[in-house]
Amino acid sequence: MTLAENTACTICHRDLRDDERARFACPFCVDLVDQRLRALAGPQGLYARLSARLAPGAGNGGPAVSGSRTAPVPLRLEVLNLMTAGGPVLGPLETWVRDWEGYGRADMCEAGTLQQRVDHAVGTLRFNLAWAAGNHPAIDEFGREVAFMWRACERQITGERPARIVPVACPCGTVLRITLDIAGARCVGCGEQYGHSELMALPLAERRIAA
């Protein structure tokens, strides 16, 4: 896809205005990605606050001890995984920094603590976000990955349950597993790109199979 052909935001799939067509993502989506990146970083950010949820029971306000005869797991593994260097937060952030570095738009830095690396990655990605919205053809993938890591951290902090996954059927027969808040998805079977409203209009996979 070239910029000349791009008439819709690749993240939310809304039509772009005439003065926005020299870009891959609309201003609304760029602002949302920026807000989510900003929420991850800093001493009061979501990543830093994960450490307070490491103890068993810390995620729901309950005691960090178990009444069973077996010893509790010393750390909540799902939280620990989010905090590791290769986990679903820092790992993807630094992967995108490396990618943008290839365009001359970012500087990779793996020095310092994990928190400092998160802060550096977020800072350089935010600084270059406007450029990416107008020039990087994978800005939609970047937006989805930022949304995933933001939600994963937010759920651990708030205790929110994971979004319900709903299977829907593409006309080609492929089953797409989506959540109700998904911005869009591409069918791996036929390559069709769906926006949010189009995904919500697809039939449930079970109903289609039973028909």
Rank of each mutant, 00 (worst) to 15 (best):
S68P: 01
G87A: 04
F28T: 11
L129K: 03
E94I: 02
L202I: 10
W100E: 01
C153S: 10
M108S: 15
W150H: 15
A201Y: 08
F142G: 01
D31G: 10
R17A: 15
I182E: 14
P56T: 05
T179K: 12
E5I: 08
L3A: 12
A85C: 04
A121G: 07
A169M: 15
W96Q: 01
T124R: 04
Q44P: 00
S197I: 07
V175L: 07
R105G: 05
C12Y: 08
A85V: 11
V79L: 03
F24D: 00
G123Y: 08
V79G: 00
E110P: 02
D19W: 09
V146Y: 06
A64Q: 12
L204F: 15
L3N: 10
H13P: 01
R207P: 00
L80I: 03
M1A: 13
T174C: 07
R98P: 02
R17T: 09
D119M: 08
G104H: 06
I182Q: 15
A163C: 04
A132Y: 01
A25V: 11
L204C: 09
V97P: 00
I182S: 08
R207G: 09
R151E: 12
H13M: 14
G143T: 01
A205S: 15
C170W: 09
R161A: 15
T10F: 10
T95S: 13
C190G: 10
C153T: 09
Q115H: 12
C26P: 00
G91T: 06
L199Y: 05
V73L: 12
P203V: 13
P88L: 06
R69S: 11
L37A: 06
I157K: 02
F28Q: 11
C12K: 07
L129N: 00
A152D: 12
Y47A: 05
V33D: 02
E154Q: 12
G91Q: 05
E154P: 01
A211P: 02
C170L: 12
N135P: 03
P43R: 14
E78I: 03
R177P: 00
A85R: 13
M149A: 02
R126P: 02
R177L: 08
E154T: 14
A64P: 03
L75V: 14
T158P: 03
C170I: 11
A58D: 03
L199R: 01
E145I: 11
V188Q: 14
L54D: 01
A71P: 02
A85H: 07
R69T: 12
L46V: 04
E141C: 04
P92Y: 07
G61W: 06
L40D: 02
N128K: 10
R14W: 08
G61K: 07
D181N: 10
A185P: 00
L16W: 07
G59C: 09
L75G: 03
V166P: 01
A210S: 11
C170Y: 05
L37H: 03
C170Q: 04
D18K: 13
R36L: 05
C153G: 09
G57M: 04
A201N: 13
F148R: 14
C29T: 03
S51F: 07
F28G: 06
L93M: 08
A138H: 11
R164W: 01
A133W: 04
F142V: 03
R17D: 11
T84E: 13
A22G: 15
M108L: 15
C190W: 11
V188G: 15
D15Y: 13
Q35F: 06
G62A: 13
R164A: 15
G123F: 11
L50N: 05
L204D: 14
C172A: 13
L82T: 01
R17S: 11
T113V: 08
